[in-house]
Each structure stands twice: as structure tokens, then as C-alpha cells.
Design a protein around this nucleic acid. Structure first.
Length: 698
DNA sequence: CTAGGGTTAG
């Protein structure tokens, strides 16, 4: 038998039988009294008739217990080879480490052989540090068995903090503490609490012993005792023992009821046994027991988590007349949503006659958002708001964000305003909407929203940054200034990124003096401007064609220890193209290639076309060869420009060759380019080539 | 001394 006992050794079988005859009689009161006085223990002594799971140290033989407590106790005679841990904290740490194991027998052995003398302080501290409630309770119960130890109010308070939510927990402690008293009578209800309690502690073997004990002492456990026991066993994955208990139930004629079956279904699902759970469900129906909302709650939860959503729905729909409560409804809907069936959940919700609550809406809205069905999600939000339900607006965050992303700015704003009047939008959500509006390219709406909700909400530094960034990107410097001032007045220091955004804004607005001022201030104040800031400046200057100033900024960038990026070079190259000075661009391109940067094909095309524009199609032609060697494939317009340019330079053969290349790669030359080649070839009197070419051109 | 079982929010 797999009895797991909370003492040192198993109570001998013979003693149990003896004890069972005398159950809780007052037979050994004299002996007990003797022991009490002799040991000067603080509590009543164990009586020999007491069962093995009773909460004290009954497992050491009685006559020797006093003697051994003087001889063997770790307190009075620590073994020489066991290291001494002197401080309390060290001992607590050791205990915590010891009890963090699933196998209680091993934990118990470790505890027994440690030389720590348990005090209430140990118990309190260990319970406070242990994060698994089960382990804390085991340890608490075990400590109560130790010689010379008794739980004080602090220990009881500590364990109650962990387990107080169970409504029978107080009763459990009471029974544990009083069970050994001579005149304490155990009732069926008390046994039930005891079985439950050992279940909480994850010690179902002890619970089994208790049930056995009940039977041996002539009690008749009812279906509630069995349900609790089965629950405890299943929670510890002891399926075989559970089976044998079920068998025993049958033998003694105790019938399973709804709760028993619900427990069995729950346990099987949580243990991963879909089919077994469904079997119990079928058996239940066969025995004429009607499942209730609880049953469906565990069935929905379990099956959905095992990926058997369909089976869960089918089981329910086969018995359409069962009324679900809100918990069951929410469980089903959340199960469906979590496992990718949000649409089904929505359909079910619409078809169901059950009462949804705020959470139902929240779950469904979240689920629909996950599958990007924002339309229905929005409808549900409106519906919930119309019903006056207040649900956590957090679930709207995804919805609002998506609306912003899709450019449905007005809808997002409307929703935020209507949620505002419910007065429960977290600051984070407002932040998100303002920021994402701004980032998604509608900084003006973000600004308006900011202006409206500013009075109620605390925006974060990040939001200010996003808002400023957006406004600057749109070149709305006046608004930027207002937001910036508000930000400073709220005590946010402008970060490098904020200054970068402002600088970018100045550049976009063509106000380069302002941009330089920001940069110089940053450097003067000892700040370290980053790559983005220089890139903004260089990009802005280049785009405006201020190439010498852009080069100056590049120099400053390198002085500040920032390495130019591909974006830096590309900005400059395009800038040089804009002012028709390809030489500057070529130098930078060389540097790019030397540093293994890959410019985009657009920039290269632009450069080749610029070379043609300044009558240097030959150089463009050379560049084309270079970039082709690097795997670039310029488009037809680049070929057209080059062909025309080469013709103007009388390099008809090269132009001809390029044109053929373009045709060969299924590209379509424009008329100007092909005419130029045709005319050039005619001038050279190459009629054959001309006719071939015309044929190819169609 | 009318008990026993349950879900959800990044």
C-alpha cells in the first residue's frame, strides 16, 4: 500500500486494528497524562489509539519516546559530521530548498535527517518564502508533528494567508489541532474537511488512509468524501488509485453524483486524458445524471485546452436545454477564442440565450481583435457600452490600435471619447492611441486628441516623444512647439530622441538654421547626438540641395564619433544628383562600396541618369557595368537614358548593345531611345543591323 | 449540520 504518512514511520498495522476498536475512547488517559507531565510538552500527548495521520508524533514507540528525545534528538546531540548552520536565515534557506520537491517521502527524509530544530519562526519564514501553496501546507502539517514544537498564532496566521481563501481552511486547522484530544469527537463532516485538507497539501495518500480509517472504525463515507478524495488523487495525477477508489465506491454501494462526475471529468482533462473525460461524461448521462453548469465549465475548459474545441461544443449542443451560467459561458467563449475559434465563439455568443457580463464582452472583443475582426469587435464594444457595462478598457487597446493602423482615425477617436465618458480608460491606453495615431501618420488627429484628453490624463514621456515625432514629420512646427512646451512644463527632460524629432521637423520645414541650433546646443551641453540626428540633418540639407552644408554636417558627424550609415550616404548621393554634380556622388558611392554598404537600386539609377543628364553617359555606362557586376538589375528607364546619352556621344555600338540587352531581358525601350539607335546605325550605313533592330522592335 | 467541483483579462 502506498500510504504516505506524516510521521517518521508507519503506524504498525496491528496498532491500527487495535486502535480502530477503541476509536477515540478514553482508554489510555492515564498513560497520556503521565507522558504529558514527564515531557513538559505544551500540548496534549498522543494517545496510543490515535491513527497514523494524526497531527503529532505518534509514530515513535511510546515508551521510548521520552528517552529518545533526550538521547537522539538533533537538538541535544547534533552529530559531529553534520555541518552546523548557525543562523536562522541559513536554516530557513535550507528548509525552503528541501521542501521544494514534489516527492514528499524524500522531502520528509531530508527534513528528518537535517539537524534543524524547528521553531515557529522557521515555519513562518518558510511559509512566507515558499511560493507553492501546496508545499507550504505540507511543511506546516509536518512541523506540527515535530516533538517539542507547537504552532503559535504567527505560524497559523502565515499559513492562513496562503490558504485562507478556502472556506473550510479554518476548520481544517482546528481539526488538526484538536483531533488528538481525548474527548474530541470526529464527525463525518470533520472527516470531509480532513480529506480536503490533505488534498490541498498534495498528500492524497494520507487522504486515502483517512478514508480507510473511517471504514475501519465503522463510519460510512458518503459520496462527498469520495468526491473530495478523488479530486485530491486526480490533482496529483494518481489515476490508478482513483480507479481503485471508484471501484471501492461501487462495492460499498455509494453512487456517483453530478459533483463526483464533474470532479472526474475535471481531473481527467487536467491530466490530459480527453477520452477518459468524455467516457465519464457518457457514463454520467447513461446513469441518468444531468450535467449542470459546473460540469460544462470544466468540460469546456478542459477540452478547449486539449485542443478538442469541437467535442466540447458538440457535448453541449447535444443537450441543448441545459442552462449555462455566466462562468460556463465565459469559459467556453474564452476557450474558443484562445484556440483560434473566435468566429465560432462570436456565432455561439449571438445564438446563445445566456446572460453575458462585462467579462464576456471583454473576452470576445479580445478574441475578435486577435483574428482581426475589428468590425464585430467594435459592434460588441458599442453594445456593451449601451448596456452600461463597464469592462476593462484594456481589451479595447488592440481594437483602438488597429483602428488607428487602418487609418480609421475618426472611429478610434470616437471610441476613445465614448469610453472617456465611462471614466475608466487607463492612461496607458490613451498614451497608446495618441502615440499610434501619431506614428501611423495622422499626427494632426493625435494632436487634437492630445489637446482634448490632456486635461484628464498623464501622458508618458514616450507619448510626448511619439506625438512630437509625428508632428515634426508632418512639418507642423507650431503644434510641435506647444506640445514641447507642455512636455517641459510637466517636468520631462527633452531626450536626445525628442531633440532629434524637433531637428527633423525643422529640416522638413526647411528651417536649417533652427536645425543647426538644436544640434549645436546638444553638442555644447555635452550631449551625444546620435546617428539619427545627423542623418536627419544631412538628409534635409541634401534634399534641399545645400551640398556644402551637408558635407559639413557629415564632417561634424564623423568628428562626433558617429559612423555614417547607408542612409547617410544615400541622402548625400541623391543630393548631389539633385544639383547635377555627380562627381561628389561618385566619391561617396566609392566609399559606400568600400564599406560594404549596399545602396538601393533607385539611388544608383538616379546617379546614372544624372550622369547622362550632364552629358557623361560614358561614365554612366561604366557605372552600369560595375553595378551589374554587383548583382543589380536597373530598370528600363535607366537603359533608355543611357542609350540616348550614348547616342549623343556617338557611341552607337554601345548604345546598340545596351538596347539589345534590354530587349533580350523582355524590357521595353521607349521610342526616343530606340529611334536614336536606329538613326545612329543608319548614319553609319548599317542597313542590315537597322532592319534586324526594327524587326525586333516590332 | 446540508457539505463536494469551476473560468476569464498582456
Amino acid at each position: 500500500m502506498s500510504a504516505l504518512l506524516l510521521g517518521r514511520r508507519r503506524w504498525p498495522r496491528r496498532r491500527i486494528l487495535e486502535a480502530s476498536i477503541q476509536n477515540f475512547t478514553r482508554k489510555s488517559i492515564v498513560l497520556a497524562d503521565d507522558f504529558k507531565t514527564a515531557s513538559a510538552s505544551f500540548r496534549a500527548s498522543p494517545a496510543p489509539h490515535t491513527p497514523s495521520w494524526a497531527p503529532f508524533y505518534p509514530l515513535r514507540s511510546f515508551s521510548s519516546s521520552l528517552a529518545s528525545s533526550l538521547k537522539d534528538s538533533p537538538l541535544s546531540n547534533p552529530k559531529a559530521d553534520v555541518p552546523r548552520y548557525n543562523t536562522h536565515n541559513e536554516e530557513v534557506a535550507r528548509l525552503c530548498h528541501m521542501i521544494r520537491k514534489e516527492d514528499w517521502n524524500r522531502v520528509m527524509n531530508a527534513l528528518e535527517s537535517s539537524s534543524i530544530r524547528i521553531t515557529a519562526m522557521h515555519v513562518v519564514d518558510v511559509i512566507k518564502l515558499e511560493t507553492t501553496p501546496k508545499y507550504a501546507l505540507r511543511f506546516f502539517i509536518w512541523a506540527g508533528h515535530q516533538e517539542g514544537y507547537v504552532h503559535n498564532a504567527f505560524a497559523i496566521d502565515a499559513i492562513t494567508r496562503v490558504w485562507g481563501h478556502e472556506k473550510d481552511f479554518k476548520a481544517f486547522l482546528d481539526i488538526l489541532g484538536n483531533m488528538h484530544l481525548e474527548d474530541y469527537s470526529m464527525t463525518l463532516a470533520k472527516y470531509l474537511v480532513l480529506i480536503k485538507g490533505y488534498g490541498w497539501a498534495g498528500l492524497p495518500d494520507v487522504a486515502v488512509d483517512i478514508l480507510d480509517w473511517m471504514i475501519k472504525t465503522g463510519r460510512r463515507p458518503n459520496e462527498r468524501h469520495y468526491s473530495c478524495l478523488l479530486d485530491a488523487l486526480l490533482k496529483e495525477q494518481q489515476f490508478q488509485t482513483a480507479e481503485s477508489i471508484l471501484e471501492k465506491m461501487k462495492q460499498v454501494g455509494v453512487l456517483c453524483d453530478v459533483v463526483t462526475y464533474t470532479t472526474l471529468i475535471d481531473g481527467s482533462c487536467k491530466g490530459g486524458h480527453t477520452q477518459i473525460a468524455l467516457n465519464y461524461f457518457a457514463e454520467m448521462l447513461k446513469n441518468g445524471i444531468v450535467p449542470n453548469a459546473f460540469t460544462f465549465t470544466v468540460l469546456f475548459d478542459g477540452l478547449c485546452k486539449l485542443g478538442e474545441v469541437d467535442k466540447a461544443l458538440k457535448a453541449f449542443e447535444d443537450l441543448k436545454n441545459i442552462e449555462l451560467d455566466t462562468v460556463a459561458l465565459n469559459t467556453l467563449i474564452s476557450g474558443l477564442c484562445d484556440y483560434g475559434h473566435a468566429t465560432k465563439a462570436h456565432e455561439f455568443f449571438i445564438g446563445a440565450k445566456h446572460k453575458p457580463d462585462a467579462q464576456t464582452y471583454a473576452i470576445l472583443v479580445g478574441g475578435l481583435c486577435k483574428v482581426k475582426n475589428f468590425k464585430d469587435a467594435r459592434k460588441l464594444v458599442d453594445e456593451a457600452l449601451a448596456k452600461g457595462l463597464v469592462f476593462e478598457v484594456g481589451v479595447c487597446t488592440a481594437l483602438l490600435e488597429s483602428l488607428c493602423m487602418e487609418g480609421k482615425v475618426k472611429e478610434a477617436c470616437d471610441m476613445i471619447y465614448s469610453l472617456l465618458s465611462h471614466g475608466n480608460i487607463p492612461d496607458a491606453t490613451c498614451n497608446m492611441v495618441v502615440a499610434s495615431l501619431s506614428r501611423s501618420g495622422d499626427a494632426y488627429s493625435a494632436y487634437k486628441l492630445w489637446y482634448d484628453i490632456l486635461r484628464y490624463k498623464n501622458l508618458s514621456g514616450d507619448t510626448y516623444e511619439a506625438l512630437l515625432d509625428g508632428l515634426c514629420k508632418e512639418g507642423r512646427l507650431t503644434f510641435s512647439k506647444r506640445v514641447y512646451d507642455d512636455m517641459i512644463s510637466k517636468g520631462f527632460a527633452p531626450t536626445v530622441d525628442v531633440q532629434g524629432a524637433l531637428l527633423d521637423g525643422f529640416c522638413r520645414a526647411g528651417n536649417f538654421d533652427g536645425a543647426w541650433k538644436i544640434l549645436n546646443e546638444l553638442i555644447e551641453k555635452g550631449g551625444s547626438p546620435n546617428v539619427n540626428i545627423f542623418n536627419s540633418l544631412i538628409h534635409g540639407l541634401s534634399k534641399a540641395g545645400h551640398m556644402s552644408k551637408a558635407e559639413h554636417a557629415l564632417k561634424k558627424m564623423e568628428e562626433a564619433g558617429c559612423f555614417p550609415t547607408a542612409y547617410t550616404y544615400v541622402s548625400l548621393i541623391n543630393g548631389y544628383c539633385k544639383v547635377h554634380s555627380p562627381d561628389g556622388a561618385l566619391i561617396l558611392l566609392k566609399r559606400m562600396f568600400a564599406q560594404d554598404f549596399a545602396p538601393d537600386i533607385g539611388t544608383l539609377s538616379n546617379l546614372i541618369q544624372t550622369l547622362c543628364r550632364v552629358q557623361r553617359a560614358d561614365a554612366g555606362y561604366e557605372l552600369l557595368k560595375v553595378i551589374k557586376g554587383r548583382g543589380y538589375m536597373p530598370g528600363a528607364p535607366v537603359y533608355d537614358t543611357l542609350v540616348e546619352g550614348l547616342c549623343k556621344l556617338d557611341r552607337i555600338d554601345d548604345a546598340h548593345e545596351l538596347l539589345l540587352e534590354l530587349l533580350g531581358s523582355a524590357g521595353k525601350p521607349n521610342k526616343l531611345a530606340s529611334d536614336a539607335v536606329v538613326q545612329g546605325l543608319r548614319k553609319l550605313g548599317r542597313a542590315e543591323d537597322v532592319s534586324k533592330l526594327i524587326e525586333m522592335l516590332g
